[in-house]
């Protein structure tokens, strides 16, 4: 199982702060596709992804135990 953290609008739209997903192996892009199919939310395509608190590109492979987070466009300051 892969733990995925959600924030801001994405948290609100899914009603979840975190989701546990049966995601055996693959890249960030694969994860996006799986989530997009499950939730039908464009945000999973457009939001940035962080793995273990660092931004990750779409070709990055997700390892067992990684903490994945979807980062919608930020608005701090």
């Amino acid at each position: 199982m892969t733990k995925i953290l959600l924030f801001a609008g994405l948290q609100e739209k899914t009603g979840e702060e975190a989701i546990e997903l049966d995601f055996s192996k693959g890249s960030v892009k694969d994860l996006r596709e799986q989530l997009l199919q499950e939730y039908q939310l464009e945000d999973f395509k457009t939001a940035m992804v962080a793995i273990n608190e660092e931004f990750a590109a779409n070709d990055r492979l997700i390892e067992q135990g990684d903490i994945v987070a979807f980062i919608p466009p930020v608005s701090g300051g």
């Binding site: 919608p72 608005s75 701090g76 300051g77």
Partner: peptide, 27 residues
């Protein structure tokens, strides 16, 4: 520093108005 905060730091602002609310992105 303030410009970079608006680019790379995972913080989000939700505006609450008289007639609604919205998470703001991409300021």
């Amino acid at each position: 520093a303030i410009e970079r905060i608006k680019e790379i730091v995972p913080i989000w602002k939700k505006e609450h108005w008289e007639d609604g609310e919205e998470w703001i992105g991409d300021q």
